[in-house]
Design a binder for these strands. Sequence first.
DNA 1: GTGGTCTAGACCACC
DNA 2: GTGGTCTAGACCACA
Lengths: 119, 119, 119, 119
Amino acid sequence: MNFTFSNDKPIYIQLIDIFKMNIISGLLSEGTKLDSVRDLAIAAKVNPNTMQKALSQLENIGLVRTERTSGRFITNDKEKIILMRKEIAIKEIEDFLRKMQSLGFKTAEIIQMIEEDKN
Amino acid sequence: MNFTFSNDKPIYIQLIDIFKMNIISGLLSEGTKLDSVRDLAIAAKVNPNTMQKALSQLENIGLVRTERTSGRFITNDKEKIILMRKEIAIKEIEDFLRKMQSLGFKTAEIIQMIEEDKN
Amino acid sequence: MNFTFSNDKPIYIQLIDIFKMNIISGLLSEGTKLDSVRDLAIAAKVNPNTMQKALSQLENIGLVRTERTSGRFITNDKEKIILMRKEIAIKEIEDFLRKMQSLGFKTAEIIQMIEEDKN
Amino acid sequence: MNFTFSNDKPIYIQLIDIFKMNIISGLLSEGTKLDSVRDLAIAAKVNPNTMQKALSQLENIGLVRTERTSGRFITNDKEKIILMRKEIAIKEIEDFLRKMQSLGFKTAEIIQMIEEDKN
DNA sequence: GTGGTCTAGACCACC
DNA sequence: GTGGTCTAGACCACA
């Protein structure tokens, strides 16, 4: 797992995003057992409190489940993961289009630029 | 000029963005004299120092020129403005594509979703 | 660190210069952790905001790196420091020669005067 | 006469420097009649008050003499001009050497860099 | 405790 | 009146 941080957003937010991405991409597949908070914190070179905060938010969203005695696991709910992927995509697209439109680009232009960027 | 702020980003950053957009959109055309710091601060319902901070950063980027005792002006450099629009667009597109790709979407899918969103 | 100010230049500019010189001279070596804004402000007998302004400009130049909650550090990039020393020197030399030449001195004369001054 | 201004120093100071340089270089030779404040102000694209301030300081130093009815003249005192040239040169050299030495350059290095810059 | 942001209000040089 | 600087002091998120 690749942990690199920018400093324009709180680290725990960036941790959450990293986990989300790794779950969606399948790098962390359903049911996988996570390392301990302490080990994860060490791996990410982050304060354990920060890692803790990220994980508990992931738990709130339902992407991670805690079992008191045996540790934390990625949810088994495959539907949930697919749904989240869709939700994030829609949000990203809308944000993107809104920004581009306020820059004065038409949808056709935007698509063209994406086509070009592909190369 | 419409000043409304969210609270997820510092006000001075939002001010910078507002000015940028107004410059790009042509609402503030090249060479225009800006109102005084104090007046702009009043208009935005913001402390003069906050407005000053935003404006001096705009000056650092080269979008605004300060004449010490006569006021601030939008750059005359039309090229610079066009360039900035392009730069912002490219940055937005790349960010967007990177995110979408790490969500596992192919360019074709992305374009299709944009097409659909249009409606 | 010796903080004394003249009043022909803004304090924050003088602070920047002091830090630069201390970095170049090695008094603040690469990677060093700086004291907190508040402590530095006290040491320099200056308002924390003023110190902050100086430090954030040093960050813009890339001489200082900020870690959001753990403090500020001198860059680790030794090359950058050497480069900066060189840049400042070149700028000073060019400024100096330009002035001397517009006073009507030839390079040979200038060098001779420097030689004499040495004694 | 070439009037271009930076904005790191007051304009009237820059005006004074420009006049000094032009006097020393001989572009304004001894005894020359200056244009009126108003015309000079127009030529320099500067507020007449600013030009006035510069000229009266030049008068204080004795480089310019005002004759109530017929206008302002560059001093006839050639010695004074030569002296001033020398003074400025010495000051510039000392400033320059002080700065270079605090950057850690030895006199020999400085001279070498000047030699190189010459090309 | 750390940096970051913001407000309020003052003073200054310059034009 | 203009921008620029500085102080004082408060509040916040983050670690």
